[in-house]
Amino acid sequence: MSRTPSELLSTLNFTEYEEQALETLLMLGQTTAPDLSEATGIPKARIYGVLDSLADDGYIKVIPGRPKQYQPKAPAEILDRAIEAHRQEFETYRYELEGVREDFVDAFQPMYESASEEVTPTEELFYVVDVGEPSEEETRQLYRTADGQIDIITKSLEYLDAVEPTLASALDDGCEIRILFLHPRHLSADNEAVQQEIVDSLTGRYPAVEIRFSNGLLPWRGTIIDPSMDYDTGAAIVLVEEKDIPLHKRQAAVTENGSFVAGLERYFELLWTHESTTPDSLEESD
């Protein structure tokens, strides 16, 4: 297991006291509020409110008696309840947004149309985002909207943790995914170790993902989805390799221009077909 129990519970967005209480209950199985307060350090003045909140949300059971006992639900039930809670939150949020849709469009559409009249050809071709969380969110959005094909060019896919759930979802939805890594001979020892760990993780968890290694250096990296040689579909995010510029100062280009995406895909196909090595061949050369 790569994550600690506390890290796993933190993904469910509990308060600090709720997380401490639930984790301890899962270890103890069943206990009273005073005993749980002593075990966790949660003040006695707060423990009943924390337990009532967990019980009201369906994460624990309250067993009547003198004193009352508290027992956690099974881990799978806890996850199911968290999913349902967030689904309800989302539905409420969606309903609220739908309620303002007409007013929102009426207010902003004229502004948008007026500003769009001044868009330059470059802006129509692509827009830029900062590298880091902004570029990772754009990448996740590409995975979400992909209908059938995702091609990735990367050094090591070191951002896998940030995009893996969305990538896995795209795979479950039937997308074909190909990843072209930089050949390890072009990497430092540290980066080669990172790449090897990520490749091992991908091949172990997602055997349907195709992997190859580019023989030469890669001038850019990024993601291409649903390219078409008819130039009418597709989108991509591209980051040009700039060794002298710190990563936090770099920007990535995002495009939905079908012709530009088709050009990127031609480059990918040439490398994939003629200038790359399979994982098996890589192991043989080692």
Rank of each mutant, 00 (worst) to 15 (best):
D230E: 15
R212Q: 08
D147K: 15
D200M: 08
I198M: 08
V261N: 03
V163M: 14
S276M: 04
T166Q: 10
L239E: 14
L171C: 05
E197W: 04
G174C: 10
E265A: 11
I211K: 04
R140P: 02
L218V: 05
Y159W: 15
L182G: 08
T223S: 01
P184Q: 06
R144H: 07
A146I: 10
D244W: 04
I198H: 14
D200Y: 07
E158N: 14
V163H: 13
T154K: 11
D147Q: 15
G174T: 09
H248W: 14
H186L: 10
P279Q: 03
D172M: 13
G222S: 00
R178M: 03
Y143A: 08
T145H: 11
A170W: 07
G263H: 13
D173E: 14
F268I: 09
I211S: 08
I179E: 01
L157I: 05
E241P: 01
Q149D: 05
T255N: 11
V238R: 09
I152H: 02
Q149F: 06
L187W: 07
E210W: 03
P279Y: 00
M229T: 12
R185T: 11
E269N: 12
I225T: 01
K155C: 11
Y143P: 03
P246Y: 08
F213E: 02
S201Q: 14
Y267K: 03
R250W: 01
L271N: 06
L217C: 03
A236K: 03
E164V: 08
A189Q: 15
A252H: 01
D226R: 02
I152C: 04
E241W: 02
E192I: 08
E164Q: 12
D244V: 08
D232C: 02
D172S: 15
K243M: 15
A208L: 09
D226T: 10
A262L: 05
E265I: 03
P184M: 04
E275W: 03
E275S: 05
A146L: 13
G258R: 01
I211D: 04
L167K: 12
I177Y: 04
R221M: 02
Y267V: 06
D161K: 13
E158I: 04
E164W: 06
